[in-house]
Amino acid sequence: MFVFTAISDFVKRRLVQPVLNLLWQGMTPRSLAATVAAGTVVGVIPAIGVTTLLGTLVAARFRLNIAATVLVSYLVQPLQLLLAIPFIRLGISLFSLGELRLSLAEMQTMFNADWVEALNKLWQANLAGVAAWALLATPVGVLLYLVLIPLFKWLLPKPKLAPVPDVPSEQITQII
């Protein structure tokens, strides 16, 4: 029980709290929603290794927090692995590339027969998956943005208004 509590405290202190601090630092609910939506959409692209560059470019283009956008894209990368095959299958069916078998045994057979042709087919399939992702990225990103705005309005701490000090009327007339 003590070990679980210690690990939980460590994860909260070293992972969760720094992430929340990064995401909440001076961001409005709209900018945070845009950052999370952009990072999520970029993070699930079915092309391994391009999320950092693409996330940076998207965040810079839309004037979002670059570090937070890239962080969100990293946090959703398990979804990237889960959605890669569905994106590729969708791209293959959208662009009528024929039937490509994606099981390990069938890919081994393709590589044993002609590895250059196998690489070509897998390259085309992955490109079709990226195209399918590109078709869905904007609508999903906008929908995610619209869903996250009320959530972040509710979650983010409300800014505290500083009390206005009483200024004597003589000082006001001197200033004017």
Rank of each mutant, 00 (worst) to 15 (best):
K158I: 02
D9W: 00
V147S: 12
A125W: 03
A47P: 07
I176C: 01
P163Y: 13
T40C: 14
S73K: 07
F87Y: 15
V164E: 11
Q171V: 13
A118D: 05
S169R: 04
L161K: 09
I176E: 03
A37M: 01
T109W: 03
L15T: 12
T40Y: 06
Q25T: 00
V142E: 03
R89P: 01
V164H: 07
G26I: 00
N126V: 15
P150I: 02
V16Q: 05
I48L: 14
V72Y: 10
V116W: 02
Y74V: 10
G49R: 05
A84G: 10
L102I: 08
G98R: 00
T51Q: 07
Y74W: 04
P157W: 02
S96E: 05
V41W: 03
V140E: 08
A118F: 08
L161T: 00
V70C: 08
L119D: 12
L82H: 13
V3P: 11
A60Y: 04
V130Y: 12
F95N: 06
F62V: 06
F10L: 05
V41K: 09
K158N: 09
L146D: 13
R14H: 15
T52V: 13
L135P: 13
L97M: 04
G129F: 11
V130K: 11
Q25E: 03
W133M: 07
L71H: 14
V50Y: 07
G26C: 02
P18W: 06
A37G: 04
S96N: 11
L82G: 15
K153P: 09
S96F: 02
L75H: 03
